[in-house]
Design a protein around this nucleic acid. Structure first.
Ligand SMILES: [Mn+2]
Ligand SMILES: [Mn+2]
Ligand SMILES: [Zn+2]
Ligand SMILES: [Zn+2]
Lengths: 129, 129
DNA sequence: ATAGAAATTAGAATTATTCTTGCACGGTCG
DNA sequence: CGACCGTGCAAGAATAATTCTAATTTCTAT
């Protein structure tokens, strides 16, 4: 376990939460993480899972993703990407942009607007197998 | 008051909620609507505001917009657009796309993917006056 | 007008998340 | 080594947006 990641001091709990996200690159909720991590940290509390996820998000190590009013999900992919929600399977997939595309260029915004964050969410159905 | 809008039977409450959204074209929360509408419907309940908003959303008359984990907001603009959240003022602004732009063309998706809905959210700061 | 269906109301319930409090840990310094 | 100090953790309570329940009212259609 490294002493810190991106300036965030590592603890056993933070490290295991981080590793779990990196290993299974889906988009689990805090509760999903809580359930999955019990193997390795049987005594961890849900509050600590929330605390660890928040610390990791605030240090830019993972991203928090929201769909409608559902529970937040957490994503270890730091590349610029959007999220596709497949209605059929209920799964969430990372979606990248075609090369050379700059989202901001495509929007009508007053000149001088400072964009700090863009979020793209799609819903639909992936083609059958 | 029309008998219905987009197949949704109008009631006094639905009509006033709808009118309020159309008049003040900001992005109020359910509670904002509840407070503002008390002039016209002093006895309306918050549950009814939620019910009316849900009915209007489900009939495609208004749109529901979510930012992070904040309360849902409601938008009467049915044109395709995204939402810019200005950190300085806390206000939300509709953002249109440049002409001829098709969001789906810009994304890497498996061929045959059916997209039913795209949502774009931006955060940042608008230029000072 | 009457009966059935649908909407509204008030307040309780739900649930994801945050907060509070006391305890444990780990490094530091005498 | 052993007291100290700051931070993190665990457990459970609190919070708040939203949804649900049950009773009443309003609407629609006969
Ligand atoms: Mn889940
Ligand atoms: Mn508000
Ligand atoms: Zn992702
Ligand atoms: Zn809008």
């Amino acid at each position: 376990m490294p002493a810190e990641i991106s300036g965030l001091r590592m603890t056993r709990q933070r490290w295991e939460v981080y590793r779990l996200l990196m290993e299974q690159r889906d988009h689990p909720t805090a509760n999903d993480v809580f359930i999955r991590i019990k193997d390795r940290l049987p005594n961890i509390s849900l509050a600590t899972v929330y605390n660890c996820l928040e610390a990791l998000v605030q240090h830019g190590v993972i991203r928090q993703v929201n769909f409608e009013r559902e529970s937040s999900r957490f994503c270890p992919n730091l590349e610029e990407h959007g999220h596709f929600h497949d209605k059929r399977s209920g799964t969430i997939h990372d979606v990248t942009f075609k090369p050379g595309v700059n989202l901001a260029d495509v929007l009508n915004l007053p000149p001088g607007t400072l964009i700090t964050d863009i979020e793209i969410t799609l819903r639909g159905e992936l083609p059958v197998s």
